[in-house]
Each structure stands twice: as structure tokens, then as C-alpha cells.
């Protein structure tokens, strides 16, 4: 009897401790990121967080009022996937991705965007093209149809977006783990050491770039996980790595384009170069760790994080279960 009592009291203590811990961490997060949370609101619950799904890419389909979230499976063998989340009902549907030959598509799927009838998903040195109709048709499967390669400029695509008929692809840099070629590393006019690039390509009717030469190259900082344009003429780059605080940098496009620019040549391919650096920085948003791609909508920045997936778990006791939107200045 005594032993049972002792066990029960230990369990009780553990429960109290866990509850206390949960409260402390949760409150702690709100204190540490007070500025973020005072301007942010919960939008919807990230689906699949108790499966192997690891969130990565994030996009919004205006016509369908639907968010698209990509992610890979933490076992790295099961197919990567796209979750469709209806904006109004918040109902989520999973679409598993497959290669052309029917094998599992196990890419890291760091980014997703769309243009006309196509959905682009970041994969290695390029983006894979899926039919939007295939993603939306409700059968839960979609297969690669085509591919856009940016291997000629040695760009490993971490995130992507499409604006005004132009595809933007950006790479991720972190010392040692994700190195970039020397030709991608530049000292900017402000003196920053930008370690990565983003390239833009005009898309043709077939959804592929009309030229293998980029329209422009943008020199960007490292650790970029997502980018989007903000309606007031700014560009946002979301950065994160591991447990570091996520930081979203918002730059003034007018200042970017006013800087002296020239041409950069990468692997013999020349394109105009623009520097996105600290001299153009307009706003910085600090938020909870592991922010991935971002979406701009109606004056708010929607931030997807991966911290609450089963691979990292800790976000479950933080705010990582939800997509938050941040009201921009």
C-alpha cells in the first residue's frame, strides 16, 4: 500500500512538474517574443504534426482560398507531401507526391509556389513541376510532370515564389552544412557579406523559363528559408536554422533598385545583379525558431514553422502547432 502511494505521489509530482514546465516554457516564449505575439494572431493549425510530416514550403491559392503546405516524411522513404488547408473551414487534405516513374518522391520540398496551371516544388538544383489540377483533384496523389533546372548557375533551390510571371528561386547557406559556390558570395555595397543568391526567371506559356539565363540575380544573406513580396513594394526573407530565433527581414525594393548595380557572371552566365543588404533593410521580425516559408496576404505575413513536427517535437509546447500571421507596419 505504501509502495502504491509512493508511486502515485511520484506520478503526481511528475505531472505537476510537466504542467509547470509547460506553463513556464509557454509563458517564456510569449515573453521572449513579446513583440511578435503582440502583433501576431493564430491562423490555423498545421496539419499532420503527429505523423512523420515535416513542414517546409508554404503557398496560398487566391482563387481556391487554400493554403498549400509541403513537407517531407521524417523517415525519408515515404513520399513527401502537400497539405491543402482551406482558409475558411481550416480543413486539411493530404496529397502524396510521386516521381514520373511512380516511385516515392522523397525530396526535401523546401519551397512551393504556383503559376497558371502549374505548382512548383523546390528540389535540388531546380524545381519540379506538378499540375495544379493534379494537386487539387482530390485523389490524394500527384506526380512530377516536368522540371526546371537552375544547375547552370549552381543554385540549390531552398525556396521559391512566382510574381508577375517571374519565378524566383533562392538558396540556403549555412557554414559547413550548406555551403554555396564562391561565385555566389558577394560583398554588398553596404559591406555585408552576402553568402547566397536568388535568381528570377520569366516564365512562358508552358510554365517554364523562356530563357536559361536569369532575368536578374539577387545577392541575399544566408539562412534564407522563404521569400515573398509585400504589396507595398518590399521583399521579405525569412531566415532560421536550428533553435536560433527566426528572423524575417523586410527590405525596401526601391532602395534595392536604386543602388549601383552591374552584372554578375556565374559559370559563364551573366545577369544583372542586385544587392539585398542591410542598407535596404526596413523591418525585422523576430519570432519562434524554425520558421520556414512565408506568405503575404492582406497586410499580414503568414509564417510556417517546423518545430512542432515529430522530428523536432519541442514546438508542440511552444507556438509551433499553428501558422501565425504577423501584421506588418
Amino acid at each position: 500500500m505504501k509502495a502504491v502511494k509512493k508511486v502515485l505521489s511520484i506520478i503526481l509530482i511528475i505531472l505537476i512538474v510537466l504542467a509547470l514546465l509547460f506553463v513556464c516554457i509557454s509563458v517564456g516564449e510569449k515573453i521572449v517574443f513579446a513583440k511578435f505575439f503582440s502583433n501576431a494572431q493564430k491562423e490555423f493549425k498545421i496539419p499532420g504534426l503527429f505523423t512523420g510530416y515535416t513542414p517546409q514550403g508554404f503557398d496560398y491559392l487566391e482563387n481556391e482560398k487554400t493554403f498549400l503546405l509541403t513537407g517531407y516524411d521524417k523517415d525519408n522513404e515515404s513520399p513527401s507531401m502537400v497539405y491543402k488547408v482551406n482558409e475558411e473551414t481550416e480543413k486539411a487534405e493530404k496529397v502524396l507526391l510521386y516521381n514520373k516513374d511512380g516511385s516515392n518522391y522523397t525530396s526535401h520540398v523546401g519551397g512551393i509556389c504556383h503559376y497558371n496551371e502549374w505548382v512548383y516544388i523546390a528540389h535540388g538544383s531546380g524545381v519540379d513541376m506538378f499540375k495544379l489540377s493534379d494537386i487539387l483533384d482530390g485523389d490524394g496523389n500527384a506526380s512530377v510532370v516536368d522540371r526546371i533546372s537552375v544547375e547552370n548557375i549552381e543554385l540549390g533551390v531552398a525556396c521559391c515564389n512566382v510574381y508577375d510571371g517571374a519565378l524566383y528561386v533562392a538558396e540556403f547557406y549555412i557554414a559547413e552544412d550548406y555551403e554555396t559556390p564562391d561565385s555566389h558570395r558577394m560583398k554588398t555595397p553596404a559591406g555585408d557579406d552576402n553568402m547566397a543568391i536568388m535568381a528570377s526567371y520569366t516564365l512562358g506559356e508552358d510554365g517554364k523559363p523562356i530563357s536559361e539565363t536569369p532575368d536578374a540575380i539577387f545577392s541575399i544573406r544566408g539562412m534564407v528559408q522563404g521569400m515573398c513580396l509585400v504589396n507595398d513594394g518590399r521583399i521579405a526573407l525569412s531566415t532560421s536554422y536550428g533553435l536560433a530565433k527566426s528572423r524575417t527581414y523586410i527590405y525596401d525594393a526601391e532602395k534595392i533598385f536604386k543602388q549601383e548595380n552591374g552584372t554578375v557572371t556565374i559559370n559563364g552566365i551573366s545577369a544583372p545583379i542586385y544587392y539585398i543588404d542591410s542598407s535596404c533593410l526596413d523591418e525585422e521580425i523576430v519570432s519562434s525558431p524554425m520558421a520556414e516559408e512565408i506568405v503575404y496576404k492582406d497586410g499580414r505575413l503568414y509564417i510556417l514553422t517546423e518545430s512542432a513536427c515529430m522530428k523536432y517535437v519541442f514546438g508542440k509546447i511552444l507556438s509551433g502547432n499553428y501558422v501565425y500571421s504577423y501584421k506588418l507596419a
Partner: peptide, 26 residues
């Protein structure tokens, strides 16, 4: 834990990344 998140982890990535490498890359 609170301290953990109040620390700025932007700098530590180099060493920290070694620890987290497997986490991040799969």
C-alpha cells in the same frame, strides 16, 4: 528553458550546427 529562448542563437550556428546537423538535414 526560458533562458534558452532568451539567448540569441543566431551566432552559435557554426558549432551549434554541428550538433543539429542531422536534425536539419534529415
Amino acid at each position: 528553458f526560458i533562458f534558452l529562448f532568451s539567448c540569441d542563437f543566431e551566432e552559435p550556428v557554426e558549432d551549434f550546427s554541428n550538433n543539429m546537423k542531422d536534425n536539419i538535414i534529415g
